[in-house]
Design a protein around this nucleic acid. Sequence first.
DNA 1: AACCGGGTCCCCCGCGCGGGGGATCTCCGA
DNA 2: TCGGAGATCCCCCGCGCGGGGGACCCGGTT
Lengths: 219, 219
Amino acid sequence: MTLSVLLADDHAMLRSGMRAIFDTQDDLRCVAEVADGRAAVAEVARLRPDVAVLDIRMPKLDGLGATEMILADPANRTKVLLLTTYDTDEYVYRALKAGASGFLLKSLPPEELISAVRVAARGDALIDPSVTQRLIARFAVSLAPPPTPPELALLTTREREVLLLVAAACSNAEIAARLHVGDETVKTHVSRVLSKLGLRDRVHAVAYAHINGLVQNRR
Amino acid sequence: MTLSVLLADDHAMLRSGMRAIFDTQDDLRCVAEVADGRAAVAEVARLRPDVAVLDIRMPKLDGLGATEMILADPANRTKVLLLTTYDTDEYVYRALKAGASGFLLKSLPPEELISAVRVAARGDALIDPSVTQRLIARFAVSLAPPPTPPELALLTTREREVLLLVAAACSNAEIAARLHVGDETVKTHVSRVLSKLGLRDRVHAVAYAHINGLVQNRR
DNA sequence: AACCGGGTCCCCCGCGCGGGGGATCTCCGA
DNA sequence: TCGGAGATCCCCCGCGCGGGGGACCCGGTT
């Protein structure tokens, strides 16, 4: 089965170079060449190629904007490969957020561009190794648990329990019911928590707990 | 410059296969072969190879655990490539969190394994395309702003302002000072916010704001 | 035995808060 | 022109909350 490819780059030279690369493969067919992002979006909508290879820097609409427009269409089946000379982090994040199937540097060897097109066509994705490195670092910190503030160690286990319930916006009476103790007891615990953590209100306690990641809200 | 490589896999057959692959390259030298994770950690510490290629499934200590131990050492300079037959998401996340330089499937063509070692050695990283696809999806949702609840549209701009200040644990008086209005006005706004959002307390409002991502706490 | 920290319960007091009213002004659109 | 929405300010009332005390019990260390 032959794969149709659209090329978008504002340099005619580069387009013909890539076209020449694809022409060496008889299962890849370059069905369109465009010089700007708006044309890319239009041609993708018209021709519905298997893969669109977009330069990031393009007139009228850049590759990122074009990617977003193309992939925003739920009926779209075209995979997008982004090509760039410089790999700014912001580019990468925007590209991946938009759902691009690849983020490659123009320094890529021709054979690998070909393989990238095939990878994208079968639904997988591919990121340049130099970018992957930083992506992993970023991903790691996003997975890392937020640092627990040291003053939390001052709290007893019971006080931490109470803090969590306060953070869940429970009133003293609700906390008392939940812990099967009297509400006077809860008041004592809450007071201790506030003074130990240097917080004025239970309101501050709620904010504190959320900011310090004591509450699992994020996916 | 020649790169030293350590191989860790509990199948002798696979090790010799990989060794044969590396032997075809005169700039790659396989300096050790081990059959379990503990041995891998020990040999990496002793030989300090440029790259360690670890299978995930190994006796005594699996590849992920070994990766974590190796990369936990700040003096370590060895890059870790993980190899696996099955690409469970949990494996991937743990591997990337530990700081692995690669996550590859055993179905990888031999030439690409060689190139992966070189990529890792120069400090870049490489992830199998089938995994990359899912990684991007996961990364995209982690970047996506949390969905804004529809009832927030009921609030006027002033009320949203007030809500944000409440979420910052400001008292009514503090909000009044910040907005240069009377505290009676603030009370009116807060009341409206609470009733519109169906919240009992300002405490609930704080929790609501944080849970719905109205406060930028995460990096 | 004496001591102490953690957990539990109790009282009083002051105040911020939230709900219930109502009022004025301005701006914008029907 | 009139109405309504938004923003502002005002009063009263009740209650939950937080601080400041004190008290008891228990398990550990000294």
